[in-house]
Amino acid sequence: METLLEKIKDRVNANFDLKDYKIYTDLKRVDLFFNKEHIPSVLLYLKEQMGFRHLMHMSVVDWIEEGEFEIIFFLWAPKEKVKIFVKTRIDRDNPVMENMDNIWPQLNTYEREFKEMYGIEFPGLVAPEEFILESWSGPPPMRRDFETDKYAKDNFATRPGREDAQDVRETIAKRSGEDIPDFAKKYSR
């Protein structure tokens, strides 16, 4: 298995500017990292030339601390029974990714979703403006800096009747006269 995965990696590397890779032998999985401009040609090559015809999934991860979105394509070769994860990073402040629904039509749906949920632009994407969210004017909600808790508190009322709830730690500290210093509080439960 390891040689097969190595071979796949080598073949891709021979044709494209592979940034990095990682092989997980027991999972029959190869992770390939590229710059985003190579992605369409890599995907097309993998699909048409190397038998990775099935797109299992596409995902976006918000690495807000690093200022980037990670975009991942999960491919499956039905014959070799091997997975490839094609990964790339795009700038979080100017998130643009090429529209690729001509390679796999289902990407159209994924792109609609990520446009709405992460605010990623896919120039050339033909689809109705709204997908899941209706009349949504807030920031793209799946971004890490959108706080669901805060949003819920700001927009929805809480039913009264539960104000007598107490924090166990605070109750005990108060009763025994313990002053928990502020710098320690982040470690409280």
């Binding site: 999934h57 995902s59 976006v60 991860v61 918000d62 289902q106 159209n108 749906t109």
Partner: peptide
């Protein structure tokens, strides 16, 4: 989890 992303069959079947 940093990200949990689910893919169901209907994501393709019911749309495109």
């Amino acid at each position: 989890p940093r990200r949990v992303h689910f893919r169901g069959a209907a994501y393709v079947h019911a749309v495109t």
